[in-house]
Amino acid sequence: MDIKELKGIRGIIAAIALVIIFAGVLSSFMQLEGNVTRGISEEYNKLAYRVAPNNLASWVYDYRGFDTLIETGVIYVGAVVSVLVLGRGLVGLKGVDDEERVVAEPMDLKTETMPVLLKYFALPVVILLVSYGLLVVTGASTSGGGGFQCGVIVASAYLLSVVIYGKRSPFNLKKKTLIAFGAFGWGLYTMLGLPGYLTTNYWQYNVGADLWSWVPSFPGSVPEVLRTVFGEPFKLALELKEGVFYATSGIIPLINIGEAFNVIGAICLIFFAFIYGWSDSEEGSGK
């Protein structure tokens, strides 16, 4: 149906139908207002500060981490499926000859005609975007979140550099690299959550192992720098002292990094598919 066809009686009926649906949607939203218990469940408030540095992190440990595992799967599968649909023409419609199968054609990237100003200023912006993404993912050290945002920021840097510089982009990741990124992120996420699940049946449970004691030690022990950078994975320490709130966040920072890798892979793969099709040959041809 086109909007032009909605004249006369059909248009009036359509408008009335929309008004009725609007009233229904609005009233159901308004009913939510009174029927939701305000604040946060008493249980979270009683337990949160013993489980994790803050309420949100305790929530991540509770169910949200497992939820995110499925979520990382969904985004990875979504990216790969869109690449397959776009690049290989696997979705054959009935009655379509092989000649009519879809062949991916690359986007027309005329980088020669790009203004010089853009060419000079895009690279610093790309570098800034990537470092901003890294800042975001490393900044969220005490609660969940940050991985997806970092992935999206870095993917936008990738898109910018490819659009400006084309195949000569300094940030030109190959198809296989992107798939590996996504799979690595998903795998890291799974591997970090599994120990807790296998020992206690709770996903992402911090089993309390001292990871650094397993590392075949350098002369002496693990360098202090490494400890500072990676914290104490699997070892959740919380101390509520008088006026001092000390916490290590367990495996949450590492999980954020895994999520970031997964999202960078998935979203760059989507961009890749829309720009080059499936192939990453020199000309970007889909043939």
């Binding site: 939820d67 995110t68 979520e71 969904v74 985004i75 599968v77 979504g78 990216a79 499926v81 869109s82 690449v83 649909v85 776009l86 023409g89 979705v91 419609l93 379509v96 009519e100 879809v102 979140g145 997806f148 998935a266 979203i267 989507i270 598919a273 829309f274």
Partner: peptide, 25 residues
């Protein structure tokens, strides 16, 4: 909403790919 955004990204990507396919067909 966080979950919803991620799912939204995936579905939008797939829908856009399908639209490209339909356009080419």
């Amino acid at each position: 909403v966080l979950t919803n955004i991620v799912i939204g990204v995936s579905t939008t990507a797939i829908l856009a790919a399908l639209i490209v396919i339909l356009y080419k067909r």
